[in-house]
Amino acid sequence: MVVKRRTAFIVALSAAAVVALILWKPTVLIYGLQAAGLYAAVAIPMGLVLGIVHIVNLAHGEFMMVASYAAYFGCRALGMDPLLAIVPTAIVTAVFGWIMFQLTIRRALKAPELNQLILTFGLAIAFTQSINLIFTSQTYKMPLDYVSASMDIGDLTFGTWSFVFVAVAIIFAYGLQLFLTKTTTGKAALAVGQNPRGAAIVGIDVYRTYGLVFALALALVGAMGALFLTKSAIFPSVGSPFTMKSFCLIAMAGIGNIPGILGASVLLGVAENFLRAFRPTRDWAEIVFFVLIIVVILARSLKGRKS
């Protein structure tokens, strides 16, 4: 009963905060959500890999970067819109991811756990530098009209295109949730994630499941790679910052908690944009990301110890 009352209190409080924010600084909420959508959509596939295969994929952002380059040149060659490239890029990236998994990561899973870190670090360097060698450090950006779509409400004019990332993040999170709880493969994957030895005993092919989950995550990364072309220019190091950000979000949500990544992203996105909206605090917006992560992790560990 106490817990329920507290939850109700928190919900009421956040609702009040949202209403206040809408009335006072609507752009904070708009841009905060848009930023959160992008953060979450990139982080969710990494969260899936971390939650089930238990590897910190330091090449996560680089996989997205490679997918973006593939999508860009595919689109340019065929005169195609990047939105049409989402599904093909997802498939190609999934296959690429599956091959990479079989060639490298699978072998590292049998080695001491830390080896996966260094292996994926090596992959990240190899990807970034190969792309740099082929396409140079110059940036490429697809000129698209619809990304400047905008909306007027009173005096307020803002871009609407980036809301697409919010939608994608929600689809990713709940799609994966459905997959993991409703389908046989998904349930097997969840079982492997929770207890690989137990899963092996009941006859689940653990390495096959790992490979599938990795490929599935890479399909999402590939889809994001194509969609990313609408938002950003691409260049060899464009993916690396996303690896760290995603890792932070996952830790904040708690490993294995995929819908939690949505909440963590919204909190960080809105908080960052809130600080950016005021002159004295705007240079400190970036710090809030890291401070919040530490606070949440420490608070959770304290709570965990008490109970």
Partner: peptide, 17 residues
């Protein structure tokens, strides 16, 4: 740097310890 990355991958795959 490409070769550097590949060397890291190869060493860790073939010498896991």
């Amino acid at each position: 740097l490409v070769v550097y990355g590949i060397i890291i991958i190869i060493v860790i795959l073939f010498m896991p310890q």
